[in-house]
Simulated scan of single mutants.
Amino acid sequence: MPINISTRIAETSHRTEDALSWQESALCAQTGPEFFFPAPGSSTREAKRLCGACEGREACLAYALEHDERFGVWGGLSEKERQRLRRNGN
């Protein structure tokens, strides 16, 4: 049976949409990026507080780790905290 490329593309697109569905209700989507991508040396406290109240926090962190996000606060962790998490194998 031949592979239907259109079907494969649609399936992949649907899986991607499901994997990113947490972004629709994420608290960061309702605020400005300045909290989550602060200037060097600025506090990440506000971003982490919002992340702590967000139901998508775990999915966000998993996304950041999987995609090697190197900037900003993702899933309640700063760049350095995510690097530490990767180094420790957690």
Rank of each mutant, 00 (worst) to 15 (best):
H14L: 12
F71Q: 07
E34Y: 03
S42E: 15
A47S: 11
L61M: 11
L27G: 15
S78R: 05
Q30F: 01
A64G: 11
W22P: 03
K80W: 02
K48T: 07
I9F: 09
A47W: 02
E79V: 05
A64M: 04
A59L: 11
I9H: 08
T31C: 05
F36P: 13
H67G: 06
Q30N: 11
A10N: 09
E46S: 12
S21M: 05
A29D: 05
S13L: 10
S42F: 04
D18P: 00
A10C: 00
E34K: 03
R57W: 02
L20W: 03
E69I: 04
D18T: 11
R15T: 12
L77E: 10
S42T: 03
T7L: 13
F71H: 10
E46D: 11
E24V: 02
L27V: 00
E69Q: 14
L65N: 09
E58H: 02
C60M: 07
E69K: 11
F36Q: 03
L20M: 15
A10V: 02
R45P: 02
G41A: 10
G41I: 02
C60Q: 09
T12K: 05
F35G: 02
L20S: 07
E79D: 15
C54P: 12
A59S: 15
A59D: 15
R49T: 13
W74Y: 07
W22F: 14
L20I: 01
L50H: 05
P38D: 10
L77C: 08
A59Q: 15
H14V: 00
W74V: 06
P40S: 09
S78M: 06
S78C: 11
G32C: 01
S25W: 00
D68K: 09
D68F: 06
